[in-house]
Nucleic acid binder design. Structure first.
Length: 110
DNA sequence: CCTGTGACATAAG
DNA sequence: CCTTATGCCACAG
């Protein structure tokens, strides 16, 4: 295990902790990891998540609840399908009732 | 060490 | 919310 995996691994660790039917934001994860300004790295880590298992990247969206990263999934609508499969409503790439579904690791895991 | 990069966040218009 | 611009930072080469 490489030391460089530390940050990424922590991102995946938090991602796996996201409860079923819930979502969170890149910034929230970054903040929880103590790197609030590295939200971009969280997204990048998700990009590498393809190398890992059990990393529900589809539960991670930007602060507006928009599926900004859906284009990185296999299909064009896979991410939305996964979310809807968990009972989350997605319309026009945006999660409905996002604030209620939002899961903040800083609060949940504190 | 330097440069490029990125699935963000925030501010301003 | 949209677009444009800026900051920010960890990683890859």
């Amino acid at each position: 295990m490489n030391s460089s995996d530390n940050f990424f691994e922590k991102v995946y660790e938090v991602a796996r902790l996201i409860p079923y039917g819930r979502v969170t934001s890149y910034g929230a994860i970054a903040k929880y990891l103590g790197a609030a300004r590295s939200a971009r790295m969280v997204g990048w880590a998700m990009n590498n998540s393809g190398k890992y298992d059990d990393v529900p990247a589809h539960r991670v969206v930007n602060r507006k609840g928009i599926l900004t990263g859906k284009h990185h999934f296999s299909g064009s609508n896979l991410m939305q399908q996964l979310l809807e499969n968990e009972g989350i409503s997605v319309v026009e790439n945006q999660i409905q009732n996002f604030e209620s579904l939002f899961w903040d690791p800083s609060k949940a895991l504190k």
